[in-house]
Design a protein around this nucleic acid. Structure first.
Lengths: 222, 222
DNA sequence: CGGGGGCGTAGGGAAAGCGTCAAGATACGG
DNA sequence: CCGTATCTTGACGCTTTCCCTACGCCCCCG
């Protein structure tokens, strides 16, 4: 469920927004000034902030900066000011969208959908990745079970593991690992992929995680 | 360098935007109708699309859908229509922002910055397309259900999927997939289309998505 | 009713791509 | 200076993919 923090000093607008959002199954938290907005954001960990610029205590742009200091949560700014400079300031401070009051609630909802659709779910990939019976730690550059990899093998493996499930073209692998000018040396790939499989795959002859896509490239299957 | 595709049918607006964007070191491509917009997007691979809704050939929302069929590139819609419903339709079709004309160029630039700042580098977000019971991801080159495609099959499928609903002539398919000298080898098409259908269609004998247009070409029906 | 063009399916030979073994070349540390 | 680890390069079977031919079907048209 998407969690939304609404920040506005007008009680009736706050109320109207809360009702509309709850009806659409959002989880809602409220704040009526900048200070409590920052506090609520830290506690509530919203997936989206709807922020009125005209707050009694802190300027709205300041609130945006305060949030952006530690979070990349999407922010939609509401404001009665129609001047372009206000919009530019808010957007460049880190806001994702800017809606001028008065606004149609349906439009705001559509913009909320647009912004949340784009947002990446927080919590990216962990540093530890399992390959068969082995565990690879990209940050520490270690593999469980006393397996050691050469620098070239690490570069190659990292490229694959950072794109789980995605096909990496031979060209991309060669240019990123060996450099431009080696784009045709597919021989290196076969050589080093074989070594990686020998060191990592449970059954190197039948690779289950370091997959070949003939004519195209390789992929890491988690 | 950020690459921007501008789609508008007014030459003077096109010109003004191009000048402003080039001055700010964006790389710019232009299109003046929906058809060339879709084509340009497939060729130019922009990091952002600025799209006017009032195009002569295709409705703007259709263009948004056409793009969203295969890419998650950010889209900022321009429009003279101020009605909320137009905004909602465009945003829900997959647009990221909606700016009503006339607009301040500085505001548009700020919105461009806001949208591109949020955008993740190419390909990290899956752009998935449904074909029957299968799901195709063009960026990762994956098909659900342990289906694998050969390089030629991918080139052919990509061409069709990037032009959803549109007829692709045999000539175009042959030249783009096999090369300029193969424009008459229509039996290649029958061969590979059959294979694609076998691998993707629920009932290959009665294709529901990879449609033959006798004497003309083929079409992908979403 | 017969013929022809366009379409779908099947199968086989050629070629390209892949995995592997092995050995020479190069860098690095003792 | 030598030995080891690592990176290049070459050669050889094997698999996948591509290209091509052949054949049967359907629809349109004569």
């Amino acid at each position: 469920m998407t969690r939304i923090l609404i920040v506005d000093d007008e009680p009736q607008l706050l109320r109207a927004l809360r009702i509309n959002l709850v009806a659409r199954h959002y989880e809602v938290a409220l704040a009526d000034d900048g200070g409590s907005a920052l506090r609520q954001a830290a506690q509530f960990h919203p997936d989206l902030v709807v922020l009125d610029l005209g707050l009694p205590d802190i300027d709205g742009v300041e609130v945006v900066c305060g949030l952006r200091g530690w979070t990349s949560v999407p922010i939609i700014v509401l404001s009665g000011r129609v001047g372009s400079q206000d919009k530019i300031d808010a957007l460049d401070a880190g806001a994702d969208d800017y809606v001028t009051k008065p606004f149609d609630i349906e439009e705001l909802l559509a913009r909320i959908r647009a912004v949340t659709r784009r947002a990446v779910p927080h919590g990216t990939q962990p540093a530890q990745i399992r390959i068969g019976e082995r565990t690879v730690d990209l940050a520490a550059k270690t593999v469980s079970g006393d397996v050691r990899l050469t620098p070239t093998e690490w570069r190659l493996l990292e490229l694959l593991l950072r794109n789980p499930g995605r096909l990496i073209s031979q060209r991309q692998m060669l240019t990123e690992v060996w450099g431009a000018g080696y784009a045709k040396e597919t021989h290196y790939l076969r050589q080093y992929m074989a070594q990686l499989r020998r060191k990592l795959e449970p059954d190197p002859a039948r690779p289950a995680h370091l997959i070949t896509e003939p004519g195209m490239g390789y992929r890491f299957a988690p």
